[in-house]
């Protein structure tokens, strides 16, 4: 986006996104098959702090705290994480099309999840296995790329594609040998992505690694600007490109692994949201990172609301994000104006 055309100042944009996020969260509490009125919602919420006479049913309170609240929080956390990871990857690879998939974070997670499902693991086992394989894949890619000759960034990307395709083939093999009556369905459904498994426990489990990854991404955000200029220039300005890239890859991969391990494959958010945020606030990561994080949370929450309320059965969120993401991608590559 051209710097000159932007009229809305950055603080207003971030505040606007924050307000939209809060409103979306409030609205999301009311959406669902079980109707809860605004009065009841606030009574239930306040009853946690002040003693209020109970006029609502226990079922209502359970739905609110055990179903809707975790799901809303998880959607926000995942949207924020995936979008932030996407923006970080685009910067450190100097490529507007880069996404965390490049280093195999998602294909590794898919393999890990499929492996756990094949071994009749419970939800916790599936999540842990997806998380572990996701990080394992990225680590393998990173270590192999260190041996690669020539340009470092290109070496990383090529290693990522290779290792990724290996794990994708592995997942296909696991699907082949899976029991078609239940396991294959479970794997396929997992790959489509969904937040329906959200519980208080999954939220907490995802939150810790996400916080560990998101905080450094946020703090280091201004430095990412310098890395987008390329290694040599960054070096002459006093920044160690290899070290900074390593830290950012680890943080972005950590939050990606945490996200996909609880939600399955949710594509596009990490490509689409950073670009929408770029259009709003420009490419300076000082502004881009906070805007991307907020935007990602809003987007994911909105899409998840559609996913769980549009039809009688839930639409996997991975399908919905692709439906929105693919046309946007086409728009990006065909628009006349210089996009990046």
């Amino acid at each position: 986006m051209d710097e000159e055309k932007r009229k809305i100042p950055y603080p207003a944009i971030v505040m606007g996104l924050g307000i939209i996020l809060i409103l979306t969260i409030i609205v999301s509490f009311f959406l669902g098959r079980f109707p809860i009125s605004p009065g009841e919602l606030f009574q239930i919420l306040f009853s946690q702090i002040f003693p209020i006479e109970q006029t609502w049913t226990v079922q209502m309170e359970k739905i609110l705290f055990n179903v809707r609240l975790p799901r809303i929080l998880l959607a926000c956390l995942i949207g924020c994480s995936l979008a932030a990871a996407g923006a970080a990857y685009q910067g450190i690879f100097q490529n507007p099309m880069a996404a965390p998939d490049i280093l195999g974070a998602t294909s590794g997670a898919a393999f890990g999840a499929a492996l756990a499902i094949l071994n009749d693991g419970n939800n916790l086992a599936i999540t842990l296995s997806a998380f572990a394989f996701s990080l394992l894949t990225v680590t393998v890619v990173y270590l192999i790329s260190k041996k690669a000759k020539g340009k470092k960034v290109l070496g990383l990307v090529l290693c990522g594609i290779m290792v990724s395709s290996l794990f994708t083939a592995g997942t296909s093999y696991l699907k082949l040998v899976a029991d078609p009556n239940d396991q294959l369905q479970a794997i396929t459904y997992w790959l489509m992505g969904s937040l329906s498994g959200a519980t208080q426990k999954t939220v907490l489990m995802a939150f810790i690694p996400m916080a560990i990854g998101l905080i450094p991404l946020f703090l280091l955000r201004w430095r990412i600007n310098v890395l987008t200029l390329g290694d040599e220039e960054a070096r002459t300005m006093g920044i160690n490109p290899a070290r900074l890239r390593f830290i950012i890859i680890m943080c972005a991969s950590l939050v990606t692994a945490a996200s996909v391990s609880v939600s399955g494959m949710i594509g596009w958010v990490r490509l689409v949201i950073p670009h929408l945020a770029r259009m709003l606030v420009g490419n300076n990561y000082k502004h881009l990172m906070p805007a991307t994080m907020l935007f990602g949370a809003v987007f994911m929450l909105l899409v998840d609301n559609i996913s769980r309320n549009l039809l009688q059965t839930e639409i996997p969120i991975g399908i919905l994000t692709a439906f929105i993401g693919a046309p946007f991608f086409v728009y990006l590559i065909t628009r006349k104006e210089e996009a990046f």
Partner: peptide, 30 residues
């Protein structure tokens, strides 16, 4: 090294567009 010597590359198109101000500000990294 960056405190001793600064480098001016050939004028180029970066992957991402920045404002002139943001571009110059990057020189203060150290």
């Amino acid at each position: 090294m960056a405190k001793l010597i600064a480098y001016v590359p050939q004028n180029h198109y970066p992957s991402f567009n920045f404002s002139v101000f943001d571009m110059v500000l990057m020189g203060t990294s150290i």
